[in-house]
């Protein structure tokens, strides 16, 4: 429909992420899984060829999902559909935009295609990017990302890395208050971002876009933990469809995300979920996805 207005503005990109706050975004690999996620109350789905734990197992080069599959998923649900492009692979991102995907995740879960990230200002659809620290978050925002998420360590079902990342970002934002004018300029140079952006963060005392948890969320308690640490919402990758009871686990994580501050509700939804996905220890990993893209 011709709307006679302006499209692709940063307000619209950032705005869609604001609408997802307090919600759960679920990794899915088929239209059928997308419907289960929507029925459980997910705010969006992430269309993938394989969930991260299977990407680890398969090895080789992980790429954008088959456009045919993405189209099927877009047809199956009414909630926003996100899809992943490789870091720096702007051609994959252009394909995703042409398909009409609602959000692109420029993701370390796929094999990177270059040293530089995508110039996200050049796109009409919004991007989410992972970050381990304030510098990474601000560089992605400066490149045009309208949403940030922790990198965590995808496909491990182990929350420790995501916890580290959100704590570090929050601490670094707090520390900005103690840095005076000239030193703040140096600090901005060190992070390779404009002074004005760092000044804005110092004054606001938070990122200018939403910050979700991702990478290692496997249980309702994990989701509640990340919300309590100050995340705006939750991405769950392998944690849903690698659990014993995906539908029940999805519903439980949705409820725990809304009621993260009510342990009695988180306790209730955590009961009898069956086995969660089998987790991995970070020290024993051959591949640390979080180290991709700086």
């Amino acid at each position: 429909m011709d709307t006679n207005g302006s499209t692709g503005t940063f307000r619209l990109k950032k705005g869609l992420a604001e609408m997802l706050k307090g919600g759960v975004i679920i990794d899915i690999i088929s239209a059928e899984q997308a419907k289960i996620a929507e029925g459980a109350g997910a705010v969006a789905v992430m269309a993938l060829e394989r969930v991260p734990v299977d990407i680890r197992k398969a090895g080789g080069v992980a790429r954008m999902a088959d456009p045919k599959k993405i189209k099927e998923i877009m047809k199956a649900v009414t909630i926003p559909v996100m899809a992943k492009a490789r870091i720096g692979h702007f051609a994959e991102a252009q394909i995703l935009q042409a398909l009409g995907v609602d959000y692109v995740d420029e993701s370390e879960v796929l094999t990177p295609a270059g040293e530089n990230h995508i110039d996200k200002h050049a796109f009409k659809i919004p991007f989410v990017c992972g970050a381990r620290n304030l510098g990474e978050a601000l560089r992605r925002i400066n490149e045009g990302a309208a949403m940030i998420r922790t990198k965590g360590e995808a496909g491990t079902g182990n929350i420790i890395e995501a916890v580290k990342h959100i704590n570090l970002i929050n601490e670094e934002i707090k520390q900005l208050k103690n840095i005076s004018g000239r030193n703040l300029k140096k600090h901005a140079d060190k992070m390779k971002v404009p002074f004005e952006l760092v000044e804005q963060i110092r004054n606001m005392q938070r990122l200018p876009v939403v910050n979700f948890a991702a990478g290692g969320v496997a249980t309702p308690a994990d989701a509640a933990l990340m919300m309590l640490l100050g995340c705006d919402g939750i991405f769950v990758g392998s944690g849903i469809f690698k659990s014993q009871n995906p539908e029940k686990t999805a519903k439980a994580i949705v409820e725990a995300t809304t009621n993260y501050d009510k342990p009695e509700i988180v306790a209730k939804v955590s009961q009898g979920l069956g086995e969660a996905m089998k987790g991995l220890e970070i020290e024993k990993l051959e591949l640390k996805m979080q180290e991709r893209g700086h």
Binding site: S6, T7, L12, P80, K124
Partner: peptide, 11 residues
């Protein structure tokens, strides 16, 4: 009804 995110707009 106006479409997907790419059709979101300000007016």
């Amino acid at each position: 009804d106006y479409g997907r995110q790419i059709d979101s707009f300000e007016t």
